[in-house]
Simulated assay, not measured.
Amino acid sequence: MAIRVVYDMIAQDGQGQAFAAALADLASTIRALPGSDGVDILRKQDNADQFLFIENWPSDQAYADASQLVPKTAFAPLKPLLGGPPARSVYETL
């Protein structure tokens, strides 16, 4: 069963543009992983500092396997820009 891993994130006030750039770089890394079905980045219309980062995977196992391959440095550019901890949710596609 295909899944979507959704991270709801907010950047520090006024850091939305830099955060968007860091998310785009992270998305490139995730898209290149074996099994990835892509990444969507959504920015809230009425809050330029709030984002959804959505990873698309064919299965829980594909996500788990690929997660082991993500370089730990991939998240470093996001950390100083985060306005709080990301909320993670997993959805199955119907």
Results as ranks from 00 to 15, higher is better:
92 E>K: 02
37 D>A: 09
76 A>H: 06
38 G>S: 09
1 M>I: 08
79 K>E: 09
67 S>D: 14
8 D>A: 09
14 G>S: 06
69 L>E: 13
33 L>T: 13
84 G>P: 06
60 D>R: 11
81 L>D: 03
85 P>T: 01
32 A>K: 11
58 P>G: 13
40 D>Y: 01
11 A>M: 03
53 F>D: 00
27 A>C: 09
22 A>H: 06
11 A>V: 01
54 I>F: 01
55 E>F: 02
35 G>P: 12
55 E>G: 13
13 D>I: 04
65 D>V: 01
75 F>I: 08
53 F>T: 02
17 Q>P: 07
82 L>K: 12
90 V>I: 15
27 A>E: 10
67 S>L: 02
79 K>P: 00
46 D>C: 05
76 A>Q: 12
68 Q>T: 04
23 L>M: 10
89 S>W: 04
87 A>L: 09
47 N>G: 01
24 A>T: 13
60 D>Q: 10
76 A>F: 07
80 P>C: 08
68 Q>K: 14
74 A>Y: 02
94 L>F: 13
50 Q>I: 00
41 I>R: 06
82 L>G: 09
3 I>F: 01
72 K>Q: 13
84 G>R: 05
60 D>I: 11
42 L>C: 14
90 V>Y: 00
59 S>Y: 09
14 G>H: 02
68 Q>H: 08
13 D>Y: 07
66 A>T: 04
93 T>G: 01
6 V>K: 02
58 P>E: 07
84 G>W: 04
26 L>I: 08
58 P>S: 12
32 A>Y: 09
50 Q>T: 12
91 Y>E: 01
48 A>I: 08
30 I>T: 09
6 V>N: 05
33 L>Q: 14
50 Q>F: 10
71 P>A: 07
86 P>A: 13
24 A>Q: 13
27 A>R: 04
68 Q>I: 00
62 A>D: 04
69 L>F: 02
58 P>M: 09
80 P>V: 13
68 Q>A: 09
33 L>P: 14
52 L>G: 02
32 A>L: 12
32 A>Q: 11
94 L>E: 12
5 V>L: 04
62 A>N: 00
53 F>H: 03
75 F>S: 06
52 L>D: 05
30 I>C: 12
73 T>L: 08
16 G>P: 06
15 Q>E: 02
21 A>K: 12
28 S>Q: 11
36 S>R: 01
27 A>I: 11
39 V>F: 04
56 N>H: 15
90 V>R: 06
70 V>M: 15
67 S>K: 09
86 P>E: 13
73 T>E: 15
31 R>S: 06
60 D>M: 14
38 G>P: 08
25 D>I: 06
23 L>D: 09
34 P>F: 12
76 A>E: 15
56 N>G: 06
92 E>R: 00
32 A>R: 10
52 L>Y: 05
86 P>M: 08
57 W>N: 03
59 S>W: 08
14 G>I: 01
3 I>Q: 00
48 A>F: 10
54 I>N: 04
27 A>Q: 08
22 A>Q: 08
53 F>N: 03
40 D>W: 04
14 G>M: 00
69 L>P: 05
31 R>M: 13
67 S>R: 10
63 Y>E: 14
23 L>H: 13
84 G>H: 05
55 E>L: 01
49 D>E: 10
48 A>E: 09
